[in-house]
């Protein structure tokens, strides 16, 4: 059945391309809008997208998408009477927000930093994780902070905060990769002198048997991760926020947090 439906879907896409792309500007009907108009009694279905190369927030484990973000959104969905539609749609980080805009997905989790320019495209939930980006270097490196990066090469993940920050820095060569593990490989191969990325991911990398690298300097940004939600259903973000409040109150958030993190600097419930 699924094979057939995807075949039909591809045919439709092809047909759309061939008959001209006039439909591109029309507001597309997302299942989210249909769901909300149907009333609140039955569970609303949401299509969830994620980038799975962001451990421990998202990762592929034995063919299943797992991680902190996934557990959080699952818990929220349960409290907010939302039904996650089928499989989680996995895509590149830079494809997530466009996918929300086109209605391919309604909600995206990928450790997305809440930023004003992104907030113009999508709604953001309340922050669910405090993060920041930091500098990862080889243990024997002389780099101690961003000030030492002049004339050096920095590996980043395309379109991330680190990319945007380094692109404005004079005299720094930036290599942009699709996946963060490629940036780490670049550091190991001496193709880059540093990797700028989210600190928790750096910590996770060090903890998974990479003893020859270290994080240097302070967090370069104070960032909050939020859940990106489509603007086409204005109510959806409120439902998610309500669900989020509930899992903080009932302690579910803390339980999930402890499952993934040893230290608690990212915890939003920390006083």
């Amino acid at each position: 059945m699924r094979k057939w439906s995807s075949l039909v879907a591809s045919t439709l896409v092809l047909g759309l391309l061939l008959t001209g792309c006039g439909a591109a500007n029309q507001p597309s009907k997302s299942s989210a809008t249909e769901g909300s108009s149907a009333g609140t009694a039955s569970a609303q279905t949401i299509k969830l997208g994620a980038d799975v190369t962001f451990p421990p927030f998202e990762q592929m484990q034995n063919g299943k998408v797992t991680g902190f973000d996934i557990d959080i959104i699952t818990a929220i969905a349960k409290e907010a009477n939302l039904q996650i539609d089928g499989d989680i749609k996995t895509m590149d980080f830079q494809g997530l927000i466009p996918a929300i805009q086109t209605g391919t997905i309604d909600v995206a989790v990928a450790g997305i930093t809440i930023k004003p320019e992104r907030a113009q495209q999508v709604n953001f939930s309340k922050p669910y994780y405090k993060s920041g980006i930091s500098l990862l270097v080889k243990k024997d490196s002389t780099i101690a902070g961003v000030a030492d990066l002049k004339g050096k090469t920095v590996a980043v993940k395309l379109g991330t905060t680190g990319d945007l920050m380094m692109s404005n820095e004079q005299g720094v060569t930036v290599k942009r990769f699709n996946n963060i593990d490629e940036a780490y490989r670049e550091l190991q191969n001496s193709g880059a002198d540093a990797v700028i990325f989210d600190n928790p991911v750096h910590q996770n990398y060090i903890n998974t048997g990479h003893e020859n690298v270290k994080v240097v300097g302070d967090l370069l940004t104070g960032e909050d991760y939020g859940i990106a939600v489509t603007k086409k259903d204005a109510q959806l973000v409120n439902k998610i926020n309500d669900g989020f409040d509930k899992i903080i109150q009932n302690g579910e958030y803390d339980k999930i947090y402890q499952k993934y993190f040893k230290d608690d600097y990212g915890k939003v419930t920390k006083k």
Partner: peptide, 10 residues
């Protein structure tokens, strides 16, 4: 891709 990552105008 670099431009899209800033302006999201896919």
């Amino acid at each position: 891709q670099m431009i899209i990552s800033v302006n999201f105008a896919g």
